[in-house]
Design a protein around this nucleic acid. Sequence first.
DNA 1: AAGTGGTCTAGACCACCGC
DNA 2: CGGTGGTCTAGACCACTTG
Lengths: 238, 238
Amino acid sequence: MVKYQQIAKIIRKRIQEGVYPVDSLIPDQVTLSKEFDVSRMTMKKALDILAMEGLIYRQRGAGTFVMKNALINQLDTKAEEYDGLTKQLPDKEITSKIIYFDIEFPSEKVMEQLMLKENQPVYKLIRLRCLEGQPYVLEHTYMPSDIVTGLTEDILLGSIYRYLKEDLGLVFGGAFRKIHADKASEYDIDYLECAPHDPVLEVEQVVYLQNGKPFEYSRSRHRYDKRSYTILDINKSS
Amino acid sequence: MVKYQQIAKIIRKRIQEGVYPVDSLIPDQVTLSKEFDVSRMTMKKALDILAMEGLIYRQRGAGTFVMKNALINQLDTKAEEYDGLTKQLPDKEITSKIIYFDIEFPSEKVMEQLMLKENQPVYKLIRLRCLEGQPYVLEHTYMPSDIVTGLTEDILLGSIYRYLKEDLGLVFGGAFRKIHADKASEYDIDYLECAPHDPVLEVEQVVYLQNGKPFEYSRSRHRYDKRSYTILDINKSS
DNA sequence: AAGTGGTCTAGACCACCGC
DNA sequence: CGGTGGTCTAGACCACTTG
């Protein structure tokens, strides 16, 4: 870990422990850079991290302050969402049931989302993920077979993302998501065990590699009473 | 606008216009810093912006590349969500109907979300926003009366956010959102004109000032067929 | 080994706030 | 006016990829 990350870690701890109380002024950049024996640019870079996390804010001419809601935001674990369920809920028992698993040529929609030609086959899979034995989410997933190679039922029963990262060495770049509400389909009623008129929360996403190539298109349908989606936005423009 | 922002703007344009084609290597930092006659640090800062936007990615030792999906992401206007509906959909006709408007003492839930004491009154308002005359979203909003002062029905009929920013001079810091699906309530059926068993997409949010003080707690209920919520995630850790 | 991006420095100037 | 944070420089070293 480089200097500015180490320093950010120390300051973050001071905020969490109340050494720098909520809503207070913290020492200026010159003082801090002397304390940590670094240049002011490096010191600023450390503070930039904390500003991105929403822990501090700065006013030219005035100083650097601890955010009023600094402690609240701590509660949200910074799980990158494309780490997959297994990593997002590490303390829970997650099981998977394979409902469909095959390789086929892509539909129009899938071709477009995954930037494929019609002759490039994709894995199509449907999994029911259960949390502590209870139905949690029904995933409809498409992955191009030239990027995601060697998929087996064994892998599907565990964490696909662990396989992609550790065994295939893929580097994730980001994801584009669309969230909407929908009526429960016959499929949802069957597998999620929800009532006929229950709403469903659907997360439709395309996940990309670092070079921007899409490797997953999926629609995850959640029971409306089991899951909500949280987002923390920080205003960078000011 | 400072140097690194100007340079970022130029490079962004080159990517959009295909001067730097998708998936290609762009000139290295030393070459670019000579072209723009700036130091390498400044050049890197310009590229940092484009990396945050998901237009480029960099590999130590290899070079800087244009993302495969660079052009796709351009389609999403970078509307900060707390700019309000009026600014998000500037080309559409948006009208508001005031269903409820009063000032009262906060409930337990509102006190907690807005960090208030029980003796600090809040504005409570319910607005139906219509898009091109059609019901679009039903907003239940609470705002502390000591921050958001001088609210009138006239303001509610237009853009509250414009009033807060321009007239009160408030500086927004960010927002915390929770998105879930729900069953339509009697209220939703009445005002959104949806069917009894239609699902509803609810966005529950707390919006903060720059100093971390919350100034809005709201629940916005959308017709499931009219609105979805989109998110672009960029992986910063790599 | 050469070339790339990432970090770090010491110092400078500027814009802004509050006294 | 002094002190704050934001920007920018010219140069250095390092980590990494590629030929």
